[in-house]
Every structure is written in C-alpha cells, then in structure tokens.
Design a protein around this nucleic acid. Structure first.
Length: 606
RNA sequence: GGCCCCGUGGUGUAGCGGUCUAACAUGCCACCCUGUCACGGUGGAGAUCGAGGGUUCGAAUCCCUUCGGGGUCGCCA
C-alpha cells in the first residue's frame, strides 16, 4: 500500500501518529512560506500543512495543482486553537508534512470537482469518471451500495436466496420493445435481453426454492425519461405459498428498514396507506399519486348538469366528464400565471381550462368577489355551488377541465384526457407552491388493478401488468363476459411521492387458468406454443401458489438520496437517446461481425 | 413520433439588431504573502457566440434548416 490511512478517517485520536496519505489535491492555499493542501480520497478530506522549513515537501507542494495525485508523509497534530474547521469531520486536526511526492499530474478538469456547481449534463456524462469524483456523486454511489447491502442482508435473514437468471433470454411478444441479440448459430434467430426475469423467477418457484430474489439488470428499448433508462436494476423477488398481504408487509418492513439504516433523518410514515386503483384514479387521476399534499380531484359532472354553458353542456351530453382541483391561495395568481396553467392544460390534452378565483368564501361571494372568464356563462349560483363542491376558501383558485365522450381516447378534449391533465397540473402546482415535504418519503400500496386494458390502436385487450397475473377469484366469472375491463386482478404497486417504485402480483399457477387467459387475450396457439409453452408445461408439475414484486433499485436509491433523476444514482447512465457519451456506444461494427450473425443492414431511411 | 426549453472564453452566466474590437463570476498562468480553509493581493492569457443557410448597410441578437442535451405527451405489462 502506498498509504497508511485514509484522509477522511483521521481524528483527534490519531494525534501524534506518523501517517502516509495518498489522494487528490482538492484545493491548495499557498501563503508563500506556508502552503495548505486539502487532500481528498475516497473517505473524505484532511488538511495538510506544509511549512517552508520542510524544504522538500514545500517544493513539491508548490508544484501541486488541483486534482494532482500526491502522496504525503507527516505527523497528525491538533490544529492551533482558533483554527479548527467545524465544517470538516477532520477539522480538529491536520497533518504536518515531512515528505511529499507527486504521483501523477492532472490537466485542469473540464468542470469543478471540488464544488457542487451545476454543470452541463453532456459534459458530466462525457467525463463521467470525473463527475463521479465529485462529493455528490460519491455520496450517491455509497448510498446505493448501502441500500443494496441492506436489501441483501434483510432478505437473506428471511430465508431468501439470490439466484442469477440469464441475460441472453427469450424474446417476448408483448410489453416493451426488446433489445435483440442475434444468434450466430441459428441464422435469423435472436435472443432478447430480459425486460425482467419474470418467467425465470416463476420457474424457480416451480423448482421449489420458495423464496428467491435477485438484484437484476433489466432492459427495455423504449423512449427514456428522468426515471427511465434503457437498462435499469430491479430487486426481483418471488415467494411461494403467500398472499398479497404477505408481500406488501414484507415491502413495508424492507422500505422502512432501509430508511432507518441509510437515512434516519428522513420521515417514512408507516403503515403505508393502501388505495385501490379505482380510488386513486378518482381522487388523484393517476395510479401513482403523491400523497404528501391534498389538492384532490373532484367531479362536477352531475353538479353542472343542466347548464347552458356550451363547454360543460357538450361534455355532459356526450357522456364525458367535468372535473377540477382547488388550489389553496391560487386566487393571488397573476394573469400570466393563469395563462401559463391554461397553456399547460392544453398541452396535456385538455381542450381548455376553466378558472374561477374566489376572493370570498363561495357561499358569501358576490360577483365582485369572483374572477373568472365564465362568470357570465355559469351564473353566480353555479359558481357558488362549484366553489362549495370544491371546498374552496376565500383566496382559492378552482381549475376545471371538461372532456367529451364518444371520441377517440387519445384525442385532445376527450374524456380520457381529463384526469391526466389534472394530475399533471396538480403535480406542477405542488412543485411551484412547494406543497410536498422533501424530507418525507410517503410510500403507498395500490391494489385491485384491472386485469386487462383496452388497446385502442390494436383493437384488442392487453394484460395491464403481464399475462401471468391472476384475476381476483370473485371476478373470474367475468372472464366469460364482454366487459373485460371490469375484471380486477391480484396486481399491486408500491409507490412513493408520485413515483411508481415497483409492481407485483399473485401469479397464475395452474395450466388451466393460464390457458384461459391466453384464450381471452386471443393469443394464437402457435404463439403460445413458441413463447409460453415452457410455462404451461411447468404448471403441470406441481407448481405452488406464488407471487412476488419487483421494485426498481434506481428509483429506490434516488428516493433515499433525494435525487429526482435516476441518472444521478447510476454510475454510467445513458442519455435520453440511449447513448453512452463516454464510450460512444452504440457504435458501428465491422462487416465481418455482421456476417457472423447473419445481419444485413437495410439502407438508411431519409 | 408531437410539443416545449437550452446550446456565448475551461466552467457557470449576462448581452437579445449597430455603443459587442462580447461583459461578470469562477477557473487557468506569473509574481507577492508563515495559519489559511470558497485564503488574500497585483498582473496576464483565454470565446467570433453549436453548425449551415438566409434577411439586413450591419446579426451572438431576427428567420429557416440541421446537430446535440434536457423536459413532457404518446410509448414504457
């Protein structure tokens, strides 16, 4: 070893020891005859003092610059009275150098490593090895390690075993686009990188392992977001002989445990609230509600029935919906702010946004107390009753979105755009008004999801979660009917602060029921045979009842690290266009490599 | 794929039709300084304003195209 100690570990208890340190120059303060160097390594910072009396060390210190790799030998001493630095864990002591050596020089870095300044993300990704040297990123990677370590210990203590499953897996017909890997041995055939180890983990249950988990990499070739990368990590787990409650309780214990171990300063209310999918959609317009604040949706469809106001009337008459939210204190918004909200609503697919500002309590409001473009159209009485229904107080702003029925679902102004628009407005306003406590992780469970959802593009029913999710026993008879949308499933999500953290379900474990689901989904026999035959086969050999869940590790770590973007907790993430700016991947390959795997490139499209 | 935002010395920003031969902070270089800790002081180098085209007497500033990054909707069981 080139060093006897880590910079960040030294304390008063080391006083008098001779130590050799090696690390990076975080900052140099040259006072002429006396030079200070803040030396940084993976464990933190310590101040090294180099007086001119130590001629050799002083000469070296004069040459050193930021990010140079240096080795320093010296004695740990208490700092002079009055010069302690309480901002540093090592601030009571310093190392007085007796010898120094430059082990490597460094170019001036392309951005600051020793301060937490905003840097263009492109630059950070290109020089990710320097970005990771910054305190924030180092801290995030440490938190990530601690979270994963906690998970492994936690599950190990509960008799889970970790099993690896293939990365070269089988393509699947539904769900996200697969990343494909061409086969050299079988021309025209492909592996797919797994979107999740779903089938393997169920087969491990058939194998009798009873409790399995894996920190598993998953791949989906879809467009990216702040919380979506093309490759991401899941805590994949599966248990036999369990019911929904067993899984949810395990998750609650795990997530509160991680908090206590890694971020005891954060507030994690337990027990985690449970909402049905239907209730969450009704109150928040989304299946991943941020429960740290109110501003819940309310339904005006019946209340405004009979009005002649054309926007509401056409929504009511067409079987559409009219819903709104109430923004506490929003009556104070400027014209510009209101316009911005309206514009936002339109971009979210609303036909428009009806705004009503109440400068007095609704029941006592006169026309002078109301600021609304639709005051004349709706009349004071209607405005008052809307205000009461919204539970608006003096100073509040009510925002209303109307959507008509009977039009294609994704069309702007359709009834299906009402809830998504209000959900986005609600989230946007909460951020603007800082309604959500950043130091609270408010987890929740969402249950009773619908088993199927209508795919309007393909004009067929798709599995909401995946095809192995079991229907609720009391809804199995509905499989015979036409309204497959009302079949509820044993599918649950864990959410936190408006993020979906993980999905899971109690699975189907009999061949008969699984085949029936395939039939309902109108899978052809050939498809079923090729893609899922091994599952149907396996279920015939004593498959136990089983279920599981798969929380995203990246999102989990981001929550505990209080980062809003999972790229901040991934060592080497990709850009929104799935590129690695450091290595340049994806890259072209030689013709021979293509020939090996029987691939011929199509001409580029213009 | 749609919509929106961003792209100016190494870095972060300002400038938004002529006063820009581009400003500020920080970093960088040189010199001075023995108790600093975002040390301080003096001096200096450094960008033709993502790229291409156009409008104009004149463009970093306006328009078009294009590239790159980001956000969002679609998409993502």
């Amino acid at each position: 070893m080139f060093k006897t100690d880590y910079c960040g570990d030294l304390r008063v208890s080391d006083e008098g020891r001779e130590v050799t340190l090696a690390g990076w120059v975080n900052r140099r303060r040259d006072q002429g005859g006396l030079i200070f160097i803040d030396l940084r390594d993976s464990r933190g910072l310590v101040q090294v003092v180099i007086p001119s009396e130590e001629a050799q060390a002083h000469a070296v210190a004069s040459e050193a610059r930021g990010e140079y790799v240096v080795r320093i030998t010296g004695k740990v001493q208490r700092r002079r009275a009055g010069t302690e630095n309480d901002k540093l864990p090592t601030g009571e002591i310093e190392v007085r150098a007796t010898a120094a050596e430059i082990m490597n020089s460094a170019k001036t870095p392309p951005f600051y490593i020793n301060e937490d300044a905003d840097v263009d993300e492109q630059l950070r990704l290109k020089y990710r090895y320097l970005d990771l040297r910054r305190e924030r990123m180092t801290r995030n990677m440490v938190i990530r390690h601690q979270v994963v370590k906690y998970i492994r210990d936690f599950l190990t203590d509960r008799n889970f075993i970790e099993v690896e499953t293939p990365v070269l897996a089988n393509p699947s017909p539904e769900g996200a686009r697969d990343y494909l890997v061409p086969s050299r041995n079988y021309p025209g055939n492909f592996y797919a990188l797994p979107q999740s180890p779903q089938q393997f983990k169920q087969l491990l249950m058939v194998a009798g392992f009873e409790r399995y988990f894996q920190i598993a990499r998953c791949y989906r070739d879809e467009d990216l977001r702040a919380d979506r990368q093309p490759e991401f990590t899941q805590l994949d787990l599966e248990m036999s002989f369990v019911e929904q409650d067993d899984i949810l309780q395990l998750m609650e214990d795990l997530y509160t445990g991680i908090g206590a171990a890694v971020r005891p300063d954060l507030s994690i209310p337990a027990p985690f609230p449970r909402l049905t999918y239907a209730e969450s959609m009704r109150r928040f317009g989304t299946d991943k509600p941020d429960l740290r604040f109110g501003m819940e949706l309310f339904d005006l469809t019946n209340a405004v029935r009979g009005t002649e106001f054309i926007v509401f009337k056409s929504a009511v008459d067409s079987g559409g919906a009219i819903e709104g939210i109430c923004v506490t204190g929003g009556a104070a918004f400027s014209r510009k702010e209101i316009d911005a909200l309206t514009e936002q609503a339109k971009q979210l697919g609303a036909k428009g946004l009806v705004t009503i500002a109440y400068n007095a309590a609704p029941e006592a409001a006169t026309e002078d107390d109301i600021k609304s473009p639709v005051l004349k159209h709706l009349g004071l009485d209607m405005i008052r009753s809307i205000g009461k229904l919204a539970d608006a107080k003096a100073g509040d702003l009510v925002l209303i979105v109307a959507g008509v029925g009977g039009v294609p679902v994704k069309e702007p102004g359709s009834v299906t755009r009402v809830k998504p628009a209000l959900d986005a407005l609600r989230r946007g306003l909460a951020e603007k008004l800082e309604l959500a406590d950043p130091n609270t992780l408010l987890f929740a469970f969402l249950v009773d999801f619908p088993l199927f959802e209508w795919n309007a593009d393909e004009e067929r029913w798709d599995a909401t979660h995946h095809v192995f999710t079991s229907p609720k026993p009391e809804d199995i008879d509905l499989l015979n009917g036409d309204d497959l949308g009302s079949v509820r499933s044993n599918h649950y999500d864990i959410t936190c602060n408006g993020w979906e953290i993980g999905s899971g379900s109690i699975r189907i474990h009999t061949r008969e029921l699984q085949q029936r689901i395939f039939d309902v989904l109108k899978f052809s026999d050939e498809d079923t045979k090729m893609m899922f035959n091994h599952m149907l086969e396996a279920f015939q050999y004593g498959a136990p009842p089983h279920g599981g869940i798969a929380p995203g590790i990246d999102r989990t770590v981001a929550l505990y690290a209080q980062e809003s973007d999972i790229r901040e907790v991934i060592a080497f993430p990709k850009t929104k266009s799935a590129q690695d700016l450091m290595t340049g991947a994806p890259l072209p390959v030689e013709q021979r490599a293509l020939d090996d795997v029987w691939i011929q490139l199509a001409p580029k499209k213009d």
